[in-house]
């Protein structure tokens, strides 16, 4: 993480120039440093860092929005007299590779509307998830795919994630 080190260095430098190394100065310096890194990606070699930071921020926003949606959905199901649960177990072939990425995906879909991760197959290519409140298996897979789409740019170093049909 060369970009992060550079950003922290810029934050400390800013705080030293401001004459006081405190939380507020460090925070301002971090933001200013991030602006510099975003403005001069070629010269500082920070394009990947900036792209992944923006992707992380967007993923956080997506996560909070979907988490609120999931809570309201399950709360409505729990309070309704005859909840249309329609429980099923779907298999989802993952595009993400690596233990960390797959664990992150499993943990995230557990907090997303309608799905709870249940397990992987032996080769760790397929994720099994329990789904409720969704009309069919295709919708459940779509819901997992949206989470994976938001997660892919955070975890990959390539400039553009390859497109799968």
């Amino acid at each position: 993480m060369r970009g992060l080190a550079l950003n922290l260095l810029l934050a400390v430098t800013w705080a030293l120039f401001a004459g006081q190394v405190a939380v507020r100065e460090l925070l301002v310096g971090f933001l200013v440093g991030f602006g510099i890194l975003a403005l001069f990606p070629r010269a500082l070699g920070s394009a990947g860092y900036v792209r992944r930071s923006v992707a992380t921020l967007r993923f956080t926003g997506f996560f909070l929005k979907e988490l609120s949606l999931a809570n309201v959905q399950v709360a409505l199901l729990a309070l309704r007299p005859r909840p249309p649960l329609n429980p099923m177990i779907v298999a989802y072939p993952m595009r993400l590779e690596g233990e960390t990425a797959q664990t992150l995906l499993a943990a995230t879909i557990t907090l997303m509307p309608g799905t709870v991760a249940m397990g992987f197959d032996d080769e760790r290519r397929v994720l099994y998830a329990h789904a409720i409140g969704l009309p069919g298996a295709a919708e459940a897979r779509d819901s997992i795919r949206r989470v994976e789409d938001a997660l892919l740019p955070v975890l990959t170093r390539r400039a553009t994630p390859e497109v799968h049909p």
Partner: peptide
């Protein structure tokens, strides 16, 4: 055993 009304694609 899960109580399902949809498919069980794990099995």
């Amino acid at each position: 055993p899960p109580r399902l009304s949809g498919p069980d694609e794990w099995n």
